[in-house]
Amino acid sequence: MVVWDEDGFQGRRHEFTAECPSVLELGFETVRSLKVLSGAWVGFEHAGFQGQQYILERGEYPSWDAWGGNTAYPAERLTSFRP
Rank of each mutant, 00 (worst) to 15 (best):
M1E: 01
V2G: 04
V2M: 06
V2Q: 05
V3Q: 04
V3D: 01
V3M: 03
V3N: 04
W4Q: 01
D5V: 05
D5S: 14
D5P: 06
D5M: 06
E6K: 08
E6M: 07
E6A: 07
E6G: 05
D7A: 15
G8Q: 13
G8H: 15
G8C: 09
G8E: 09
F9N: 02
F9D: 00
F9G: 00
F9T: 00
F9E: 02
F9R: 02
F9Y: 12
F9Q: 01
Q10Y: 02
Q10G: 04
Q10F: 03
Q10W: 01
R12A: 07
R12K: 15
R13Q: 12
R13W: 08
E15T: 15
E15F: 11
F16G: 02
F16A: 04
F16R: 02
F16Q: 00
F16H: 06
F16Y: 04
F16C: 07
F16I: 15
F16S: 02
T17C: 10
T17A: 08
T17E: 08
T17L: 07
T17Q: 15
T17V: 13
A18C: 05
A18Q: 14
A18W: 11
E19Y: 03
C20Q: 05
C20T: 06
C20W: 03
C20M: 15
C20P: 01
C20K: 00
P21H: 12
S22Y: 00
S22T: 14
S22P: 02
S22R: 00
V23T: 10
V23P: 01
L24M: 13
L24E: 08
E25A: 10
E25C: 11
L26F: 08
L26C: 15
F28T: 06
F28L: 10
F28Q: 07
F28N: 01
F28H: 03
F28C: 05
F28A: 01
E29V: 03
V31R: 03
V31S: 01
R32L: 01
R32D: 01
R32E: 00
S33Y: 01
S33P: 01
S33C: 02
L34T: 04
L34M: 12
K35Q: 15
K35G: 01
K35C: 03
K35S: 03
K35Y: 03
V36L: 02
V36D: 04
V36H: 05
V36W: 01
V36P: 00
L37S: 07
L37Y: 13
S38R: 12
S38T: 12
G39L: 01
G39P: 07
G39I: 00
G39M: 04
A40G: 10
A40P: 06
A40L: 11
A40D: 12
W41L: 01
W41F: 09
W41V: 03
W41Q: 01
W41G: 02
V42L: 07
V42I: 12
V42D: 07
V42R: 05
V42A: 05
G43S: 02
G43R: 02
G43F: 08
F44A: 02
F44H: 04
F44G: 00
F44P: 01
E45P: 05
E45L: 00
E45S: 12
E45Q: 14
H46A: 11
H46Y: 07
H46E: 15
H46L: 12
H46C: 15
A47F: 06
A47E: 14
A47L: 08
G48H: 12
G48V: 05
G48R: 10
G48L: 07
G48S: 09
G48E: 09
F49V: 01
Q50V: 14
Q50L: 04
Q50E: 15
Q50W: 05
Q52N: 11
Q52C: 05
Q52T: 10
Q52A: 13
Q52R: 13
Q52E: 09
Q52D: 12
Q53L: 05
Q53G: 14
Q53D: 12
Q53K: 09
Q53C: 15
Q53H: 10
Q53M: 07
Q53N: 05
Y54A: 12
Y54H: 06
Y54E: 00
Y54V: 14
I55E: 09
I55L: 11
L56I: 08
L56Y: 05
L56P: 00
E57D: 12
E57K: 11
E57M: 09
E57N: 10
E57I: 04
R58M: 10
R58V: 14
R58Q: 15
G59R: 03
G59W: 03
G59D: 01
G59M: 03
G59Q: 04
E60V: 07
E60H: 12
Y61R: 04
Y61H: 02
Y61P: 00
P62H: 10
P62M: 06
P62A: 11
P62F: 10
P62Y: 07
P62R: 11
S63A: 08
S63L: 05
S63E: 06
S63R: 11
S63K: 11
S63T: 10
W64H: 07
W64Y: 14
W64E: 07
D65T: 12
D65M: 12
D65V: 13
D65C: 08
D65L: 10
D65F: 08
D65Y: 08
D65P: 15
D65W: 09
A66T: 12
W67H: 07
W67V: 09
W67G: 09
W67D: 04
W67I: 15
W67L: 15
W67K: 08
W67Y: 05
W67A: 08
G68L: 11
G68C: 08
G68Q: 13
G68V: 14
G68P: 06
G69Y: 12
N70I: 08
N70T: 08
N70Q: 10
T71P: 09
T71V: 11
T71S: 10
T71I: 08
A72G: 13
A72R: 11
A72T: 14
A72Y: 06
Y73H: 15
Y73V: 14
P74I: 06
P74M: 10
P74S: 12
P74V: 10
P74L: 12
P74K: 13
A75C: 13
A75V: 14
A75W: 13
E76Y: 11
R77D: 10
R77A: 15
R77S: 13
R77K: 10
L78I: 11
L78C: 04
T79S: 06
T79A: 08
T79I: 08
